[in-house]
Design a protein around this nucleic acid. Structure first.
Lengths: 199, 199
DNA sequence: CCACATCTGTAGCGAACACTACAGATATCT
DNA sequence: AGATATCTGTAGTGTTCGCTACAGATGTGG
C-alpha cells in the first residue's frame, strides 16, 4: 500500500498567505476564492488540507500564535516588569503599523462579531488574546515574587490593562493611525503602568 | 396628485432593532432576513426606506450617533478635564456592559475589516469614532485655555489615549469581560491621565 | 369619487457563497 | 512493475445572499 501523492504546496507558506487575507478582510469578509488565489491552490487542496474555512482560520491562528509566542518570549525576558510593559507596548505600536502586514492585529481584525454559524470564530480569537494576557499576568506574578513589583499591585489588573490598551491600538491602527500616534498612546500607557506599580 | 400610502412602521424603532442586529453580528454577519425579522417588516419596506443594506447601516449609525452625542454632552459638561476623563471612562465601562445592549460598542463590533464591496463600512465606523475623539480633544483644548490643563499638555494626545482605551475596552467587553474588569481598566487609565496632565 | 403616489406582502431574481464529485496525476510500498 | 493511497484541477453542486418585479392595499389632492 502506497502513501499517496505528496502535497504540491508548502502548507506554512500557504497559511501565511491565508493569514494575510483573513487579516485584511476579516473571517467573514474573506472568500474561498480570495483565499485559494492568495494561496495559489485550488479549493479541493484547501479542503483536503484544512477541512473547512473555519479549519483554515484555526490553522492560520495556530501559525500566528507560534510567531507571537516567540515574540512574547523576547518581551517577557526583559529584566523588570516595567521594561516588559515598555517593550510590550512599544513593539505593539511598531508591529501594528508594520507595512509587511495589514494594519492592526489579526486577533482583533479577524472578527469581533460574526454571523449565525460562525459564532465560535470570535470566541477562538478571544482565546488567543487571553493567552497573551495570561502570559503577561504570569510574568507580573513572578515580578511580584521577585520583589520587582510591590505587594499591593495586582498582576491580573496590570495585564488586563496592557491588553486593553494594545487592543485599542489595534482598532486605531485599522483605521489608519500611524506609528507615531500609537507610540504616543504607548508612552502615556506606560506612565499609567509606572503610577500603578508605585501604589 | 396624492401623497401615497403612509409608512406603516416607526422608522426609529425599526432602526433600534436593526442596530441591535448589526451590533450583535457585525455588518457582514447580519443578514437581510435577520434584519427584516427584527424590524418586523419585509424586504421591500426596508429598501424603500433605506435604499440598501449599507444605507440601513448608515441610518442606524446616524441614530446611534445622535444618542451618543447626547451622552457626550453630559460627559463634556463636567467642570474639569480630569472629571471629563473620569466620566468618559467609567460610563464607557458601564455602557459597554449594559445588558440592554449587546456587549461592546457598535462602532467597533460593526466591522473593523470587511470584504470586497463593503470597504467603506469600516471607514464609516472609524469616522464616527473619530468624532468622539475630536469632541474630547476640543474639550481639552478649552480646558487648556481655561488653565485647567498645563501648557505642556497635548490635548490631541490625551483624546487619542482615552479613545484607544475605550476601544480596547470594547474588544474586551465583546469577549465577555464584566463590568468590574472594565472599571479596573478605566481606573488605571485615569491614573495615566492624571500623570499626563501633571507633566 | 376618482386619479395618483407611495407603501406592503408574496414570490422569486441573478450572483456569489462554501463546498465537493470525479477523473487524472503522482507518489510510496511490496 | 503493480496495487494503493493521496493530491490536483476542472467543473460543477445546493444554498444563501442582497435585492426587486409585481400586484394589491391605503393614503392624499382634485
Amino acid at each position: 500500500m502506497g502513501m499517496g501523492r505528496p502535497r504540491a504546496f508548502d502548507a506554512d507558506a500557504a497559511l501565511d498567505r491565508a493569514m494575510d487575507v483573513f487579516w485584511r478582510h476579516g473571517y467573514e469578509g474573506a472568500t474561498i476564492a480570495q483565499l485559494t488565489e492568495a494561496m495559489s491552490i485550488n479549493p479541493p487542496s484547501l479542503y483536503a488540507a484544512f477541512g473547512s474555512k473555519e479549519g483554515l482560520l484555526k490553522a492560520a491562528l495556530d501559525r500566528y500564535t507560534e510567531k507571537r509566542d516567540a515574540w512574547m518570549d523576547r518581551v517577557l525576558v526583559a529584566p523588570t516588569a516595567h521594561e516588559v510593559a515598555e517593550r510590550f507596548l512599544m513593539e505593539h505600536a511598531d508591529a501594528q503599523t508594520d507595512p509587511a502586514n495589514p494594519p492592526g492585529c489579526l486577533l482583533v481584525q479577524g472578527g469581533l462579531a460574526c454571523g449565525t454559524g460562525s459564532e465560535n470564530v470570535p470566541f477562538e480569537l478571544a482565546a488567543r488574546r487571553t493567552r497573551t494576557e495570561d502570559q503577561l499576568r504570569d510574568r507580573f506574578v513572578r515580578a511580584k515574587a521577585e520583589g520587582d513589583l510591590g505587594e499591593s499591585v495586582d498582576p491580573a489588573t496590570l495585564a488586563r490593562y496592557l491588553s486593553a490598551v494594545t487592543s485599542g491600538m489595534c482598532v486605531m491602527a485599522s483605521s489608519g493611525a500611524d506609528r507615531n500616534a500609537l507610540r504616543e498612546i504607548a508612552a502615556v500607557s506606560l506612565k499609567a503602568f509606572e503610577e500603578q506599580t508605585k501604589g
